[in-house]
Design a protein around this nucleic acid. Structure first.
Lengths: 150, 150
DNA sequence: ATAACTGCAAACGTTTTGCCAGCAT
DNA sequence: ATGCTGGCAAAACGTTTGCAGTTAT
């Protein structure tokens, strides 16, 4: 993962266009994002970063997430709920959220590939992206209250 | 579509549980929603309703959308962009948004049905809902600036 | 010197809430 | 009389922005 940072410092074509520097704040934000499994919100990230840089501001977190996502290193994912979420993994994949505990997991496969052509054919749209969220009850929560869940 | 309203007045089991009345405002909101093709935002709906009930408030629109969606008559759809969108059609379907003109169309078929079992099997989640948004360029916009789009 | 960056605080847009009055049962 | 409802205004919430000072090149 450090590779990303090194690439950035060494004139990554995408970032060098934007004359972007790898500040301490940005580095930590990226590290948090890589460490985090659960598609954190900006505020989640802020709280994590604060452990390391106590005076960091939420504005800085948002600004950096914006810059990082404009480069494609980070992906903003709009899932249900009122907050934007962020993700380092940029390949297409869906998400599944537990309606009990709110955890969000990645789908282990892409359910859409076979559909894009079909969509293009039937709607006339030229498809450029997709975003999917399933909701359900995760195995753990099914265990906890199997009666409800079933 | 009026059927819905009639049902509501005649003690629809869902709504009668909630002791919900069909007020003029709620009726108009529902009508706007049924007339609207394009997954309107609360504000879109507010502006439409105001044509008929000039003193209606935005709060009322939100309150009613909340009530209607809790009964399942209306579905909140969280798509990209900062605003919630609403939809009368409650059967599962995906959406596709044009990145040029922002219009949103329904997908003419459900690309997920075959996936749910697979997801359940592979993630252990019990799937209860799904939400999908594709983005692309609609046929109209492809025509307008085919060079860009292609 | 320049340009990117930060923290802070204010502003912004969307949604929710509290209050009191009105209306249907 | 009760309780769902509406209008209004304020609050809440997530996010963005302006500013002045700091840091890296």
């Amino acid at each position: 993962m450090v590779i990303i940072i090194v690439i950035l410092n060494q004139e990554d074509p995408v970032l060098s266009n934007k004359k972007t520097r790898m500040s301490r704040q940005r580095k930590v934000i990226l590290e948090v994002l890589e460490r985090c499994e659960n598609h954190p919100t900006a505020d989640d990230i802020y709280l994590q970063v604060r452990k390391e840089i106590p005076r960091v501001s939420l504005g800085t977190v948002y600004r950096n997430l914006e810059i990082l996502s404009s480069t494609g290193i980070v992906k903003r994912v709009q899932l249900s709920g009122s907050q934007m979420r962020f993700d380092t993994c940029t390949d297409d994949h869906g998400h599944i959220r537990c309606i009990e505990c709110q955890r969000i997991d990645d789908l282990p496969f892409d359910p859409f590939n076979p559909c894009e052509n079909e969509i293009q054919k039937r709607t006339g749209y030229k498809v450029v992206d997709r975003c999917v969220e399933f909701t359900g009850i995760c195995p753990h929560c099914q265990g906890q209250n199997g009666e409800d869940a079933a």
